[in-house]
């Protein structure tokens, strides 16, 4: 997204003041957000407590956040919009479900194999669409989602439209985590993924991927095979998306072909834009906002999704840096106000 980091255009044709960032990532940039993220997660967990409804909300929010984080590398960093994430999440979910119902393998194996299969599926779809970008890629991945959902409904091993249910409990080498422990683990997984993605964004790998969005020819000429890097980015995203599916399926205890709808994928595109594309934590914040608006506010009822979609348009038009982007600006302004001696030329 090129609106990432750019401020609204000035009304008159005056060159904007130069913007700057530290040339190399500082420890604060790479790790500072983790502290805030963990604090927020602990706050949420305390708020949730043992309330079953709130627990479901939190798991849903974690699922949304993971799908949005899965889209973060290909969509926000590399700039290619794929809408196949419903299919990837389904792969993750069905992997857990099938390992549980059809095999005697430990359940964590399902958590592992789902992301791998989803990554392979993403590479195959990516190879088939390697010449496509933009509108064409959106259209093909939409058609893929529909075809895949159709396949899940009609295949015999997936249980058809009824899907699969009643799974074994998750065991991790003999340890059977309780429901509360799993809830905490969901929040922890989101924090860890966001934290690692943020470090990845700042790493040399992240620089190459972010350059690929704007100037693929320069990246290619500098020695990175751009189509392959695209596939790697897609595969990583699909893996994280499958993790979301595994989490939701494990916690809800059932999965159907339409568990991960296209609506969810649309919302997942909007989450980083709402929260802020500058860091993966923006996608997490966006997921929390979307869950709050669409599921937790009874006064909004069905119009919560409408509010989200209109809100996204508004954010794109007037506040392209999202909520976190503005909080960050606010923080910098505050710091500058507190240290007046450093002058205005930061």
């Amino acid at each position: 997204m090129t609106m990432n980091g750019s401020s609204a255009p000035p009304p008159v044709e005056v060159a904007p003041p130069p913007r700057h960032r530290p040339p190399w990532p500082s420890g604060l940039q790479a790790n500072g957000s983790l502290g805030l993220g963990v604090l927020a997660a602990i706050g949420l967990l305390v708020w949730v407590g043992v309330n079953g409804y709130k627990q479901t909300l939190l798991v849903t929010a974690a699922t949304y956040a993971l799908i949005a984080l899965g889209m973060y590398i290909p969509f926000v960093l590399a700039g290619s919009l794929s809408l196949a994430y419903g299919a990837y999440a389904s792969i993750g979910g069905y992997a857990v479900a099938l390992i549980s119902t059809e095999t005697r393998l430990p359940l964590w194996f399902g958590w592992l194999i789902g992301p791998v299969i989803a990554a392979v599926a993403a590479v195959i779809l990516g190879l088939a669409t390697r010449r496509l970008s933009g509108f064409y890629l959106v259209a093909v991945t939409l058609l893929f989602s529909e075809a895949f959902q159709n396949y899940l409904s009609n295949a015999s091993f997936t249980g058809g439209n009824a899907g699969l249910a009643s799974f074994r409990n998750l065991d991790v080498f003999g340890w059977y985590p309780s429901n509360e422990q799993l809830i905490i683990a969901s929040a922890a997984v989101v924090c860890v993924v966001a934290f690692l993605l943020n470090r990845l964004r700042l790493s040399p790998w992240g620089i190459v991927v972010r350059s690929m969005r704007e100037v693929p020819s320069a990246v290619e000429a500098a020695g990175t095979r751009v189509p392959i890097l695209n596939l790697v980015a897609l595969a990583m995203g699909a893996g994280i998306g499958a993790l979301a599916g595994a989490l939701f399926t494990q916690m809800s205890g059932s999965i159907q072909p339409d568990t991960f709808t296209l609506n969810l994928v649309f919302l997942a595109i909007f989450m980083p834009i709402i929260g802020g594309t500058g860091t993966p934590w923006g996608a997490v914040l966006g997921a929390l906002i979307v869950v709050e608006l669409t599921l937790n506010l009874p006064s909004l009822h069905t119009s919560g999704t409408l509010l989200v979609s209109l809100g996204v348009l508004l954010i794109m038009l007037v506040a392209p840096r999202g909520v976190l982007g503005y909080l960050d600006t606010g923080r910098k302004e505050l710091m500058r106000a507190l240290t007046p001696t450093k002058g205005t030329d930061g």
Partner: peptide, 19 residues
Amino acid sequence: AQDLTVGENLLLGRVAMQH
């Protein structure tokens, strides 16, 4: 890459071949 810093753009030439 217009959204990246001068340093990051310079680094691209250095690290792209490692990928």
